[in-house]
Design a binder for these strands. Structure first.
Lengths: 258, 258
DNA sequence: ATGTTAACTAACCGTACGGTTAGCAAACCG
DNA sequence: CGGTTTGCTAACCGTACGGTTAGTTAACAT
């Protein structure tokens, strides 16, 4: 069946959100004007108000999407991981995947000050809940021996910081594919907190094989690949499957609204 | 000798910069108005224009200060470190120290888009130079065996990301002291990239002893403390010594301009 | 005393932004 | 076909912001 009117509306709405998110990441909330967002979509400013009541709602929408992705990833991580460390790493990997793939270039959870008090309260509450869950995973990992003893609060701050920094330098058009980045990030996080002695890391992110292809395995890759790498792939697959197909159509290319 | 007029001017100028930096970190460049900065200093907006020609110069000043600190830290790290990994970690530790101690609550090197083209070009050039130097340290470390094989670009992105995230959650009034934070951060970064098998990390940042005090050593602390911890203290000391004493007077407390 | 300069304020200016309004054109629906 | 809704534009409004100006106060120098 062809997309209904509501489908079209939803797709365009998502496109607006995507464009706004990219711009907020690049120039900040206050540094982005409604005119600019509209122009990037080939439309005038007033058109945006058909999809969102005001600028703040745009920001709130970004946060909503990010938090949805966060909790979905958390659930997948909890299911697939076999110990605290795996659950944590898989959650992070899923989250990065989702934001990178879908929202084009993730949403940084800064600029919450710009939200209306109610929206802000909601966001802060959700974000804190997510962070608490992550810290709990670290503690689980310490308890079950998969994570080296450390300060869970600091460990999560470090991981989230590295993650939230990604949109500042990652360019989808660059040499690294999201898939490679997810893997390499997971590796380094894993190494930072793992209790097992000094796992190997990815040596060259751009050289990571993109698919479970039959090409020759690189010596620094799957040779001593931990089982978690299969889980990361599974998490990525699941995340993709959970997205309605029609939303995937928005994909990477710029969407013209008119 | 009592502070001369120029001293006073310099101190106030620094106070303005500090207030601006704190506000830029909290609410972003565009989210901060000159009126707000002035009000926080107990002064009217026009007064600020005695110290800086315009708002952009304020931002450029923050960046200048940060980059100065960056290169000073790099030099100290290079001198004090005995291998690539130590030089890297000491550089990072010095940088964090400097920004946390002096600029009250570091400057995030975002929002470079808001700069005038010339200022931006200068900043980008310097920042890239710094990042290249850090990556070079990673490569040195891999070569001399102190750093585990990894992608230097990614490793530095991760470390810088975690570092730049600090101002988003660190409150000088909170339970963690800058000194403790520096140590704990260094620990976790060290662990992420070190070639030696799984060093121990700080378990509770807030419990770290603040001075080389004579109080009982905690079991998770100095017992197997690597020599680098002494170097971190040395780097912190040097950084402090290099700052002119009169600037230290600005310190933490809010400075009223009038 | 007197002139000079630095530090600051109150009031103002131009503009760019978020948001609104009125209206047009095409699509949809009976 | 006619009536209604949807998606958009052009033009406009109020305001808050960056920056300027003119003038006041006080410190300092001679």
């Amino acid at each position: 069946m062809f997309p209904t009117k509501e489908d079209i509306h939803g797709i365009k709405r998502r496109a607006v959100l995507q464009e706004a998110a990219a711009s907020f990441n690049l120039k900040g909330f206050h540094g982005t004007s409604m005119n600019e967002i509209a122009a990037s979509l080939g439309v005038t400013k007033a058109a945006l108000y058909h999809y969102f009541p005001n600028k703040n709602a745009l920001l709130a929408g970004c946060f909503d999407y990010a938090m949805e992705a966060a909790f979905a990833s958390l659930e997948r991580g909890r299911k697939q991981g076999r110990n605290g460390r795996e659950r944590l790493i898989l959650t992070i990997a899923g989250y990065v995947t989702e934001l990178l793939d879908e929202l084009n270039c993730c949403v940084v959870l800064m600029e919450e000050h710009a939200l209306e008090p109610e929206d802000k309260a909601k966001l802060v509450q959700q974000r804190d809940k997510f962070e608490r869950a992550l810290r709990a995973l670290v503690r689980e990992g310490i308890a079950d021996g998969s994570v080296a003893p450390c300060d869970p609060k600091l460990a999560i701050f470090v991981i989230l910081g590295a993650m939230n920094w990604v949109p500042k330098w990652f360019k989808p058009s660059g040499p690294w594919k999201p898939e490679q980045l997810t893997r390499a990030l997971s590796d380094i996080f894993d190494r930072a907190i793992s209790s097992s002695p000094a796992a190997a890391m990815v040596r060259d992110v751009g050289e990571l094989p993109l698919r479970p292809s039959s090409e020759r395995q690189r010596s620094d890759d799957a040779s001593r690949a931990p089982a978690i790498r299969q889980s990361i792939k599974a998490v990525r697959r699941d995340a993709e499957a959970e997205r309605p197909a029609r939303l995937r159509a928005v994909g990477k290319g710029r969407v013209r609204l008119r």
